[in-house]
Amino acid sequence: MFFILEIRFHGRGGQGAKTAAAFIAEAAQREGKFVQSFPEYGAERQGAPVTAFTRISDSRIYLHCGITEPDIVVVVDPTLLKSIPVAEGLKENGMLVVNTVEPIEKVREHTGFNGKIITVDATKIAVEEIGKAVTNTAMLGALEKAKEIVPFEHLLEITREHFTYKLGEDVAERNVKALKRAYEEAKVW
């Protein structure tokens, strides 16, 4: 059965939206899926809104354009909820995964999305576990709660491996903890 899962990430430069998009693609790749992941490059500066995309499929992916009707939208930065239409094109039976402290009613009001929403205070988790507000790994935990894209244990493994290689064991463990905690604390509405 031909099927593409399309995920769109919204963040701000420096929060790792691009990395999260590539990361979940790589994890799915290891599970034998065909994947594609790419950011939308505008002016590259810290704090500017950034969009990144991931496609996951059972067969080869030919499309080479942005995702306009995603199955899942992940909002990595809480302030974007009010400033850009994050739920634009999101399928009605899709899912919205948001980093926010706002009550669910407010999230629905800001986004106009009435489908399944997953909320988590990823900023708090990132600050407490990692020591800075880089929320991408926590948001991957919330995304995993929304939909098990790859087996949870495998996601933890690849997170550990990736960060150990790039930033050392301590940072890796902190990110794994943030991911696990967000998975546990995320609320499904």
Partner: peptide, 12 residues
């Protein structure tokens, strides 16, 4: 190859 579209896109 196409700048960004394939050069910066992760694909299988």
């Amino acid at each position: 190859q196409d700048g960004f579209i394939t050069s910066h896109s992760v694909e299988t």
